[in-house]
Design a protein around this nucleic acid. Structure first.
Lengths: 343, 343
DNA sequence: TTGTACGCGTTATCAA
DNA sequence: TTGATAACGCGTACAA
């Protein structure tokens, strides 16, 4: 028996399958990728040999020969932020059994890091690219435009997509929450924000728009930091906010982690919620509706965003480009006890 | 000018660099991978041309030629569980600038899915494999043993490593928390558990061991479900537990999500914590120490586990195999208000 | 320290 | 519908 080739470690190759099945290698290749282009007979024959030999195609050889890797590059700003963790879960679940692989990158909320990772990912000739947000650096934007593959910007929508987009308007989200607080009768409504990435900024803009229109705006009501968000930070920011404006009667928290921290601080300081202070969060995590009192929040559809981003990519790859390249998945205000002021 | 080759899309290849630099292709290859083996002069010369041309090596061609991809396959049971999200973050952070890439797989807590993904990953000849836990299926275990690359089992330690291991003993963790509750004077100590994956089971075993030894064990004190863990589930499980044992005076929660749900339910039902019921969690998430009252929990070092798993892999690849193939990172009991009974 | 010849496993191209 | 041939871009083996 001929010794196995030097490097393959004894793994059967497509040539082994072809020989044993008495066909050409290319026919095996086709039987695996486009079965409908191979006759019924050969297809069965080949399938049998593949099973017998335990043949598994080498994705690297495939990528080299076809100049296209079955890989979707995905760039997110954080892996631990529950919001993006759910996006990523949606992305993975959207793969089903599609032979596509995910190449995940963590940009740590840095545009430059995003740009760097984009270059790394691009070197593999990915089948598609998924990036978070719409604030790419000019260089990154150029890379995306010239990527030669479908691109989806997720989590936000905006006027100028590179290719496709799926998300929602954070500005409108900010407006919706703030309007709710105003309608609930709150007047000294503070804004508490951490990290202050572009999406947080736009939520703040929505807050500001509503407050100004209602004649309630006061810059001292805004308490933000670039520190990453956390529950404990929520506590501190509430204390800061109260120090500046002791008459504060509500807070719109940039996200639910902060909101939870604010709630705990209120418990600790024996501040009545929602009587003395109303609390609203953003994203509506699992815990938010369970808290006591339950927290008002804005439900966003991040799992769905991940899933549908992959659907759009797969459709595009299959040649069925979605008629709607920009999808607004919206959000849903969840009014709960934390802003239910008794009149 | 000669037309660009058919498929490469105009990207410069190693041959282009070699020609322009007036050297052989292999010298360029070496200059990039093992600079110390190329003379100072050529190295600089080549670096300049690489910059000029914007040459980026093709990882697929590299993997095909070397029969080894610069990829570490990582299998975790969940992407959204904060504990694993932090492990994954540690893994990514452990990469630094090492040219290694992560191939991430979500097993959804299924041994069969783990086995399937292992086969997929193996087809790429990864440089290393990282898997969660020590309960692989026999077939998966065999695949790992014959993988021909470093393997790290993370999150747990046990007697029979495939190769390397880093984590801690969940049994000991369960014992430590339970012993603390006993020492704090609680007697009717319930166990609340969700998902009940192997690690949860071992925590339960630790609980049981201590309770039996203290003569306090009663099967009715155990309330578990295979439903995935969540804050809301914590509420329900506490209600179930109290329905079974109204005299319950403490609960050891399988994880902090459940503990938070239990805390909220106590607030809602006006049950004094820690006076009437003591609460202890597991993992010590950020929120746990901030809650009101702050929750006792067991701090586990999952970020560190991820980071050091990659360190071990990198050391092994570099030929410096860690002298200690099994690393117990332990844990740390965080006693807080929720179990601080006033005597 | 550098280079030559060849092979890695697959798919694109073109012809039958 | 099928196949022969030539890439794909790089690293290994070996020689100089």
């Amino acid at each position: 028996m001929k010794p196995r080739s030097r490097r393959s470690g004894g793994r059967p190759t497509i040539a082994d399958v072809a020989k044993r099945a008495g066909v050409g290698a290319i026919t095996v290749s086709r039987a695996l990728r486009e079965p409908e282009r191979v006759s019924e007979d050969l297809r069965r024959q080949i399938a049998r040999v593949v099973d017998e030999l335990g043949y598994v195609p080498d994705p690297n050889a495939r990528a080299l020969a076809s100049a296209r890797a079955d890989v979707i590059g995905v760039l997110v700003p954080s892996l631990t932020n529950n919001v993006f963790a759910e996006v990523v879960r949606g992305i993975y679940d959207g793969l089903d059994d599609s032979r596509l692989q995910i190449q995940l990158g963590n940009t740590h909320y840095s545009g430059l890091e995003e740009e760097r990772l984009l270059r790394v990912f691009l070197s593999q000739r990915p089948s598609a690219l998924v990036v978070s947000g719409i604030d790419q650096t000019p260089a990154a934007r150029k890379l995306l435009e010239e990527a030669g593959c479908p691109v989806v910007q997720i989590m936000e929508i905006g006027p100028d997509p590179v290719d496709m987009m799926i998300g929602f308007s954070h500005f409108e989200g900010g407006r919706t929450v703030t309007r709710h607080l105003v309608d609930a009768g709150y007047r000294k409504i503070g804004f508490i924000g951490a990290r202050m990435d572009p999406r947080s900024q736009r939520r703040l803009s929505g807050y500001r728009a509503v407050m100004e229109r209602a004649g309630l705006f006061d810059p001292r009501l805004i308490t933000t930091t670039t520190t990453p968000s956390s529950v404990s930070l929520g506590r501190e920011l509430l204390r800061d906010a109260l120090a500046k404006v002791p008459t504060l009667d509500a807070v719109f928290c940039n996200n639910d982690d902060l909101a939870l921290g604010v709630l705990f601080e209120c418990h600790r300081a024996a501040i009545d919620v929602p009587g003395k202070i109303g609390i609203a969060g953003f994203n509506d995590l699992d815990m938010t509706g369970v808290a006591f009192p339950s927290l008002t929040s804005l439900r966003t559809h991040r799992y769905e965003i991940g899933r549908r981003a992959i659907s759009m990519v797969r459709a595009t790859i299959a040649g069925e480009r979605p008629e709607q390249p920009v999808v607004d998945l919206g959000f849903e205000l969840k009014q709960r006890e934390s802003t239910a002021r008794t009149a």
